[in-house]
């Protein structure tokens, strides 16, 4: 089962992009679209979008960067640890849950460290990699996506994102506990 899954994953990773590009362009020609001109026209917009998100990304990443550098995370973990232990979350996994929405590279670092110490197939190793796999870098996504359309009043987006993150972490904890605990 695992082997088949691995093969499927590899196949998708290798073929998806060439397949999408190839089939879209071929179908475009079939539909008599002037594919080259159309592509270039669209590609021009890409540049503007990428440049437009720079200030938003700088603002967000600098705040997250100094937060990580200050050691505030350790403090937050110390404060939350007694609470999360009540629901059976191992203390080592808590930094992962807190870092995941903030920083992709930071959470990869935490995940790798934990798996190096406890082993990737240990309960906590499976838990942190599930947590990584079952969520996104919420604040990065919000900054970039809203930056692209210059939205400054994000309304309930942050709250909804945080609620989703908490639900994701709890869901991951629950299912890993049931299957591997």
């Amino acid at each position: 089962m695992g082997e088949i899954l691995k093969t499927v994953i590899n196949l998708v990773a290798v073929f998806a992009i060439p397949f999408i590009i190839g089939s879209f362009v071929l179908y475009g020609i079939f539909k008599k679209v002037r594919v080259y001109e159309t592509f270039v026209e669209g590609a021009k917009e890409g540049f503007n979008t990428a440049v437009r998100i720079i200030p938003y990304l700088v603002a967000m990443l600098v705040a997250i960067g100094i937060f990580r550098a200050s050691g505030a995370m350790d403090l937050l973990v110390a404060v939350l640890d007694p609470v999360t232990r009540l629901i059976g979350m191992p203390g080592e996994a808590l930094p992962m849950a807190l870092m995941r929405p903030l920083s992709g590279s930071g959470s990869i670092g935490i995940m790798t460290d934990i798996m190096k110490v406890h082993g990737p197939d240990s309960f906590i190793g499976i838990l942190v990699s599930t947590m990584y796999g079952s969520s996104e870098t919420t604040f990065y996504v919000l900054a970039v996506y809203f930056g692209a359309v210059a939205v400054k009043n994000t309304r309930h987006a942050v709250l909804a994102g945080i609620i989703a993150d908490i639900a994701g972490a709890l869901g991951a904890l629950f299912i890993v506990k049931v299957l591997f605990g």
């Binding site: 079952s134 994701g168 991951a172």
Partner: peptide, 10 residues
């Protein structure tokens, strides 16, 4: 599998 379930909750 576990990631899909976690993300589905989210």
């Amino acid at each position: 599998g576990t990631s899909i379930i976690g993300a589905a909750c989210a």
